[in-house]
Design a binder for these strands. Structure first.
Lengths: 186, 186
DNA sequence: GTCTATACGAAGATAGAC
DNA sequence: GTCTATCTTCGTATAGAC
């Protein structure tokens, strides 16, 4: 019974899960094949350049998901505090309360770093700017807002690592819970 | 001219550099062999279990270095602020101002995670406690001190990632510069 | 303690049948 | 669009000479 056993979107979701768990180099075609239920050749049919294309598809998918489900919160017509609250709630959901690793961490190391570092540099800069804009709306100077936003991104990334190392999601949850207040504290 | 072309300590230092750059799975024996100047068989002579032993030696070496050169600052007979300042200066040097990656990040992913995660859980807990003790000396409650210390470790890890993603060491440098003041802010 | 040689499986990748 | 088969390269690991 040939016919798409799985949709491309579903395949990409499972590919992302493998990258999250094993990193770029650790995500072997065998693991990707098992996770998707697709044979090696089927993977190459969908992703002609193999792992690089799968990683690119993973990045595109994650970016699109965030652009649809998380970032818009920062542009809604709401008070700064509520915008930030919706945003951090969205992020906490995205990272499954700290269970999931972030590709910004995984894909800026080793071989993947040479391929994707510039992608993530742009993404991180854009994220900091988007948060800073909201903080600025709340009455902080551009420089102060930018530093606070950078600290927020640092806290997200650091909390993911500390939670992973400890095997305990509470640090991540605490950071996300307190983030809005910290961004707006006088 | 057989004879140790390189000391074991020097070999371990170069092995650590490879792990830092490529992560655990990305650190192939070929790369480790090139970095140390030792043939594959020589590596197995020094590290009978191959990569696992090299990673263990890397961890032991890093732990010993920190225990000698960085952590003692937290136990010196100095005011809390000066202890923390010496400590953060030591860490900044250890991470080469943000240029170096942290093994806590790299070795808690993928296969390495299964091998070493518990090692890092212990290390992170011990580090948080050591920082918290000093913060407590400065007059904060145990709970408050512990949370502040956890935030400090989160900031270190996050700053390393953000600096790496941006290709810019300034976020890390800023975090280290401001860490003492943040830990002791009223 | 280092080297060359080699074994062996895993990884990435492709060809061609269905 | 998926499969089996195949290919090559790379990674890990060992044997044995020097």
């Amino acid at each position: 019974m040939p016919a798409p056993v799985i949709s491309r979107d579903e395949a990409v979701d499972r590919i992302i899960a493998v990258f999250r768990q094993y990193g770029y180099e650790g995500a072997s075609l065998t693991r990707l094949s098992e996770a998707t239920g697709l044979g090696r050749s089927s993977l190459y049919h969908h992703f002609p350049n193999g792992k690089v294309d799968m990683a690119q598809a993973a990045l595109d998918s994650v970016r699109a998901w965030l652009a649809t489900n998380v970032f818009p919160a920062l542009s809604e017509d709401l008070p700064p505090e509520e915008k930030l609250r919706k945003f951090t709630d969205g992020l906490a959901h995205f990272y499954r309360n700290g269970e999931r690793a972030c590709l910004t961490d995984l894909f800026t190391m080793g071989e993947a770093g040479e391929l994707f570092q510039e992608h993530f540099a742009k993404g991180v800069r854009a994220l900091i700017k988007a948060i800073a804009r909201v903080v600025q709306e709340a009455g902080f100077t551009p420089d102060d807002a930018s530093t606070r936003a950078e600290d927020a991104v640092i806290a997200i990334q650091g909390a993911l690592i500390v939670s992973r190392a400890l095997g305990d999601q509470r640090p991540f949850q605490r950071v996300m819970r307190d983030m809005t207040a910290k961004l707006l504290a006088r």
